[in-house]
């Protein structure tokens, strides 16, 4: 297997929810060390697509391949165990819990034996702080600090560091920059680059064509559940991408459209 063989692929996937077809015949592939940008208007099916990738929903039709082998995730837990980690739009952080407890939630390290196994909070704090420091979160020096005191970008950094720590090979980010200011968004984009450098395959969902163009290697534009366009970096201009997202065919740039940030 070569470096650029896809880690995760969807082939001809459709998803039908009680009458509404959220996805139709979607084919994508996520390569290691590359950022796949998933673009599309509201209701285009982006969230549905990542829910299939992350094991929340099974596809109604079509196949998912991990390392070229057909796979079905029965739960997000199984997806994570196979290296597919998802950071949802609300980041999945729990504000009233400490950084350490958030970091290890659902995978708490324990010490001791049998029913007397206890949460090893000191080891957890050391590991969590080391991991988030690597992702630029140096302001946090006490593992007991509540996550609610972190900024939006810092929470993204925490979630990304967490996914990397637990061995993610594919990292799915649902609109990681949409709620952030310019500076924080730039920081998150640099985190994504750092993850890419380590050979992680990244699925980056966004409304923002500028952010997508800044970071993407591969692009997929969804429109009403179907792939409207699929191309590589440099093959289309920003105007063409904006036109595709708005439901056009991407052939004629529309000067009346401005991106939303």
């Amino acid at each position: 297997m070569t470096q650029s063989d896809p880690i995760l692929q969807l082939i001809g996937v459709s998803k039908i929810f009680a009458g509404t077809q959220a996805l139709r015949n979607v084919t994508i592939s996520v390569r290691p060390g590359a950022v796949l940008c998933l673009l599309g208007d509201n209701g285009a099916g982006k969230s549905t697509l990542i829910k299939i990738l992350s094991g929340v929903h099974p596809p109604s039709a079509g196949a998912m391949l991990v390392d070229g082998v057909e796979t079905r995730f029965s739960s997000p837990r199984e997806a994570r165990a196979k290296g597919v980690a998802t950071v949802h739009q609300d980041v999945g952080a729990i504000p009233l819990m400490s950084v350490t407890r958030n970091f290890f939630l659902g995978a708490e390290p324990t010490r001791g034996w049998g029913p007397f196994r206890l949460f090893d909070s000191s080891a957890a704090a050391v590991a969590a702080l080391a991991a988030i420091r690597e992702f630029g979160l140096t302001r946090v020096t006490d593992g007991e600090q509540l996550v609610g005191t972190l900024s939006g970008g810092e929470r993204q950094a925490l979630s990304i560091a967490r996914a990397m720590y637990f061995g993610a090979r594919v990292l799915i980010l649902d609109e990681p920059t949409s709620a952030l200011g310019v500076k924080e968004a730039a920081k998150v984009l640099s985190l994504v680059k750092a993850a890419r450098t380590r050979g992680i395959g990244i699925v980056f969902i966004t409304h923002n064509a500028r952010h997508a163009m800044a970071i993407g290697d591969d692009f997929v534009v969804l429109n009403q559940g179907a792939v409207a366009a699929s191309f590589r970096r440099g093959e289309k201009t920003r105007e063409e991408v904006l036109d595709l997202m708005a439901g056009g065919d991407g052939s004629e740039p529309r000067p009346d459209l401005e991106d939303d940030a």
Partner: peptide
């Protein structure tokens, strides 16, 4: 509550249930 994984799950369940479920709780 303070020293077991279950205790961590209790806080997480009440703090943000969908996030907790997303983390495998």
């Amino acid at each position: 509550l303070w020293r077991t994984p279950f205790g961590n799950w209790v806080y997480a369940t009440g703090g943000n249930e969908s996030a907790a479920r997303g983390a495998g709780v």
